[in-house]
Design a protein around this nucleic acid. Sequence first.
DNA 1: GATTTTCCAAGCCGATCGGTCTAATAAATC
DNA 2: GATTTATTAGACCGATCGGCTTGGAAAATC
Lengths: 220, 220
Amino acid sequence: MSSEASVSEPRRRGRPPRDQSHPNAPRARLLRTGVAILTEKGFSAVGVDEILASADVPKGSFYHYFGSKEAFGLALIDAYAAYFARKLNRWFDDAERAPLERLRDFIADARSGMARHGYRRGCLVGNLGQEMGALPEPFRMRLAAVFRDWEMRTSRCLRAAQAAGDIPKGIDCDSLAHFFWIGWEGAVLRAKLERRPDALDVFARGFLAMIQANDMGPRR
Amino acid sequence: MSSEASVSEPRRRGRPPRDQSHPNAPRARLLRTGVAILTEKGFSAVGVDEILASADVPKGSFYHYFGSKEAFGLALIDAYAAYFARKLNRWFDDAERAPLERLRDFIADARSGMARHGYRRGCLVGNLGQEMGALPEPFRMRLAAVFRDWEMRTSRCLRAAQAAGDIPKGIDCDSLAHFFWIGWEGAVLRAKLERRPDALDVFARGFLAMIQANDMGPRR
DNA sequence: GATTTTCCAAGCCGATCGGTCTAATAAATC
DNA sequence: GATTTATTAGACCGATCGGCTTGGAAAATC
């Protein structure tokens, strides 16, 4: 019925939309500084004005690009999920490394990322998840979906390790990936609280020892 | 120099302080409802007025008992830590049960506690820890100290299990208790996000399998 | 140059924030 | 009853909250 948006419109009339992929465009800048601030302080504790001041963007622009603070938060989740998916791909798809080494590489990268910010920034998804009781309901499904996505990618990596013989056959890699992300988020939370990497190291070491336990037990 | 407070003052002049141990006293009621609300929504997202309305206490009383919202938050942490320490004692000191069973009992109790509130309430300490970036600095040390206390109590229980032969000798129970609380808080966070107990179950099962792995591995 | 649309800029709104203040009331001693 | 202290009660304050509004500048088409 209504005129469908064709793949390539013949032309638009007025001023064309700014290329928002440019990293210095206001929208992209808002998302970047938004992630930086919210990974540190969460959603409820941060006012729109603080983000505006930090990104040096006037209020009019904010409500031009995002309909509300809630809409902005949802866009932040998407941006963070996309950023993190690229990061996971980079490590988990590195054919040069043994599968289990890829997991170690990711862990080391995440650890140094937290160190770089003085252990003040955590994980956006974990942060917002903890705040869920005070957040608009649409956040819940998106956050849960992001975790599922990360676990899927991790499970693939673990299955590759299993195929390589680095993880005992009987283990269910989906459950193991689930276990990893449950605990890893706890470790990130704790590292942020203590401003120290200890929790990351303790969990990572325990997890890796766990999946190789059968190799470390008494040999037959 | 100054008149020291003797063990038993001869008498006070005016109206004596109300017995605040009475569970219906305003101060106790504020702490109770404060824990209930903050375990669900956190600190920053909750206004003093909301707590006042829910506890049915006027603002004057609040600022009579607590100097500020921050002071109230610190008192909440102490109250919650005391409540939780009693809970841990109840389970971990139950001489009727095998040490490892005591840990299982605690886990089951915590799980049913979350279920009772529809998985809407998490752990106050974990919640505030995640918010730390937006919280007054004094919160940090208290929260970290609470975790250390819980881990100490847990480690004692694990050592008892080790003495009973239910955990392999070589394992360091302090590290293991640390690992447990890092991951358990992650599981609580996740269960709250998903409003399901799955994360609690996955982590608990994984953890328990982990400490008994050597018994499950190939026998010599 | 007129028109159309995008984007920038900021003043302003009502609501809510944490916190203060004053007055009244209650419960004890003197 | 006078005094002293504890507690209740809520109006009120300036600041900040998320969000709306209006106006104009910029960039394209016609």
